[in-house]
Write a protein that binds this DNA or RNA. Structure first.
Lengths: 197, 197
DNA sequence: GAAATAGTGTCTCTTAGACACTATTTC
DNA sequence: GAAATAGTGTCTAAGAGACACTATTTC
């Protein structure tokens, strides 16, 4: 889901991405972190820059250049924004200013591509977690179902997690073993060339 | 190779990435295209934004924010910059201003990741080309050797090229068939999850 | 014929996904 | 025992890489 805030009353588009003007002598990453903390009232699990946007369509603030950031938080986080802020499902979004629509698309695409290349999902989990929890995070972020056995084999091959000796019983059904994130070493991962269409 | 230009005489670092200040009411992409045309004296085969850089280290011009672009040209392009401009091998670069060193790293990494996801290499080739030419482009951009038979099988499976009925004899050895870029359709390319370390 | 380059056939190994199974819990 | 969830064994298909081969040219 995506957190949007209310724009000024007179604007045509009611909702906007949370934003903040870059102040002199501040770094981009610091400003993004401040914006996230102020909007979410907590520190996100992950903040990453996506890219800059500077096409004809201007930002609502009148700024010519926008730099989009992705911030991930887990599902229980409430918004602490002074004013209205609401979570929207990514497939049921209200109308956005034109540039922001493009920014959001780019953020989601980029998130899914980066999932393959870094341990992003682990930031959203507590220190120990079940493999079903981990798989659910991946399915949420990718927006599609994954194959259980295959998911676990890949995970095992990548040496990213190690089992603890704890088990968690979650109501009915067999208890699940808890794992922790413990990346071992680099695979010699040289893939052949994929021609992406 | 990377095209660098001479910085001002009094600066500690002799060489810099080509740059240009963003003018009011110009789009980022347009400004990047203008810079490329002015620096290279030709239109690049491809221009793509990588991301913005706004850390503590400032750009030599004093600008707080830099947006890095990648522009690709083929090997025969000369530099038309007013002033000195020289091509450097990516593994033998002179000293650069600190932020620009990071920008260049990010551009190269991003290029290699994007190679899998779009037909970037074809922009660097003439309308018809041999498969050996195509493979050499990929090897240059990836910085490693590829397996011939495997490369061709992947290419065939992706339906990206079609043979023409022309053959080109390049000195000694068997003539090579010419191909053209003719993407057919989308593969249903859903890969499983790769855990990239 | 030798050297050089283009292109292919076959084998092995890895891995994603399907399917079906076993294991352990609550009700 | 039924239902629910965790976890695994085996098969198949696709694809990457190794290896060796054939094909066609120039010298």
């Amino acid at each position: 889901m995506v957190l949007l805030v209310r724009g000024p009353a007179q604007s045509r588009e009611k909702w906007q991405l949370p934003w903040r003007s870059l102040r002199p002598d501040e770094t981009l990453d610091d400003e993004a972190a401040k914006l996230a903390r102020k909007t979410l009232d907590t520190t996100p699990a992950l903040i990453e820059q996506i890219r800059a946007f500077g096409d004809g369509r201007r930002h609502p603030s009148g700024s010519e250049l926008s730099v989009a950031f992705l911030a991930l938080v887990d599902g229980d986080t409430g918004a602490g924004f002074e004013g209205d802020a609401t979570w929207f499902a990514t497939d049921d979004l209200p109308s956005l200013p034109p540039r922001q629509r493009g920014m959001l698309e780019a953020v989601l695409t980029s998130l899914r591509m980066r999932l393959d290349h870094g341990p992003i999902a682990f930031h959203l989990l507590p220190p120990t977690f079940t493999l079903t929890q981990l798989q659910e995070i991946y399915e949420l972020l990718l927006g599609r179902r994954l194959h259980k056995a295959s998911f676990r084999r890949s995970l095992h091959a990548a040496w990213l997690v190690e089992p603890t000796d704890e088990w968690r019983s979650e109501g009915r059904g067999r208890p699940a073993q808890l794992f922790r994130y413990a990346p071992k070493k680099r695979r010699g991962g040289r893939r052949g060339v994929r021609f992406g269409n």
